[in-house]
C-alpha cells in the first residue's frame, strides 16, 4: 500500500466528552495514518475510545453531548478539526462516510429505504429526483438487495437486520467516499450474516478503491480484512503494525489478552 501518501493523517488526537457534571477523556492523544485504498483495523474492548475516534473524524457527537477535540486531523491537507460546520457537512457522507453498529435503529422507520438513499445522493451529487432514484436502485443492487427497483419503496421494518446493514452500506458508499468508516458493522448481526457483510465491505473497497477504517472488538474480524491494525486500550493506541506482525508477535500484554479471547476451533474442548 502506498503509505507514502496517506489521505488521512491524525496527530495527537484527544477527545473529551463533556457532560453537565463531568468531563471524561475518551481519547488520549493518538496518532495514525490511513493510506489511499488501505484498510486499517482498530481493535479494542468496549469503551476504549475507538468509536469516539471514528466520530471525532467526522466531528459527530450524540445529541445533547459535547465532545471537545484537540490535535490535528489532516485530510488531504485540510485540518478537519478547524473546518467550519458548513464545510464539514460537505465532507460528511460525500468524502468520509460511516456505517454504524446497529442496523435495526439506524434507519428512519417512517421513510422508505429508497428515499433514505435518494436524499444523500441529491444532497451531494446534485442529481435530479429521477437520476437519484436510478442511482439508488443501482446502489441497492450492488450491495446485494434482490429486486432492488421494487424493494426501494419498502420500509425498514420489511427488511431483516442483514439486509438493513446492506442498505446502510449502500447509503455510505452512495457518493463514492474516499474513506469509509465501519464502526462495529457486524456486531448486531448473526454470525453467518457477519461474514457476508464483511465480504461485501472488502469487495466494495477493492472495486471502488476507497480506504476502509474498520472498528471492531473482535480480532477474528480484523484478521482477513485489513493490512494494518491499531490496538486501542484506555483511549490510547497501545500497539500498531501490519496485521500479521501484531497477530503472530504481539508486543503488548493487552494485545495478547485480546488474541486469547478469540475462540479457536482447536481449543474449543480444552476448557471443559
Amino acid at each position: 500500500m502506498s503509505k507514502a501518501d496517506p489521505i488521512l493523517r491524525v496527530r495527537d488526537l484527544t477527545a473529551r466528552i463533556v457532560t453537565r457534571k463531568e468531563t471524561f477523556q475518551a481519547v488520549r492523544g493518538i496518532s495514525f495514518d490511513i493510506g489511499a485504498g488501505e484498510a486499517v483495523g482498530f481493535v479494542g474492548e468496549s469503551g476504549c475510545g475507538k468509536s469516539v475516534t471514528a466520530r471525532a473524524l467526522m466531528r459527530l457527537a450524540p445529541e445533547g453531548t459535547a465532545i471537545a477535540l484537540d490535535g490535528a486531523v489532516d485530510f488531504h491537507g485540510q485540518d478537519l478539526l478547524r473546518l467550519g460546520e458548513v464545510a464539514m457537512r460537505d465532507i460528511r457522507g460525500r468524502r468520509i462516510a460511516m456505517v454504524f453498529q446497529d442496523p435495526m435503529t439506524s434507519l428512519n422507520p417512517v421513510m422508505s429505504i429508497g428515499a433514505q438513499i435518494d436524499d444523500i445522493v441529491c444532497r451531494h451529487m446534485g442529481l435530479s429526483r429521477r437520476e437519484a432514484r436510478q442511482r439508488t436502485v443501482e446502489l441497492l443492487a450492488s450491495v446485494g438487495i434482490p429486486d432492488a427497483a421494487h424493494r426501494a419503496d419498502d420500509y425498514p421494518h420489511q427488511f431483516s437486520g442483514g439486509m438493513r446493514q446492506r442498505v446502510l452500506i449502500a447509503v455510505a458508499i452512495s457518493c463514492d467516499p474516499e474513506l469509509l468508516i465501519a464502526d462495529e458493522p457486524t456486531t448486531a448481526l448473526d454470525v453467518t450474516v457477519q461474514a457476508q457483510i464483511l465480504r461485501l465491505l472488502l469487495r466494495l473497497r477493492d472495486e471502488r478503491g476507497m480506504s476502509l477504517m474498520l472498528i471492531t472488538h473482535d480480532f477474528g474480524v480484523v484478521a482477513g480484512m485489513v493490512e494494518r491494525v491499531n490496538v486501542m486500550y484506555g483511549g490510547e493506541i497501545v500497539e500498531a503494525g501490519p496485521v500479521e506482525q501484531v497477530f503472530h508477535a504481539p508486543g503488548h500484554a493487552y494485545t495478547r489478552a485480546l488474541l486469547d479471547a478469540v475462540p479457536r476451533l482447536d481449543s474449543a474442548g480444552q476448557k471443559q
Binding site: 467526522m58 445529541e63 465532507i91 460528511r92 446497529d102 435503529t105 439506524s106 428512519n108 451531494h124
Partner: peptide, 16 residues
C-alpha cells in the same frame, strides 16, 4: 427522537 441512531446517521450523511 433526537437521541435515536437514525438521526446520527442522517447527520453523518451530511444532510442539511
Amino acid at each position: 427522537v433526537s437521541g435515536q441512531d437514525f438521526v446520527m446517521v442522517a447527520r453523518a450523511k451530511g444532510l442539511l
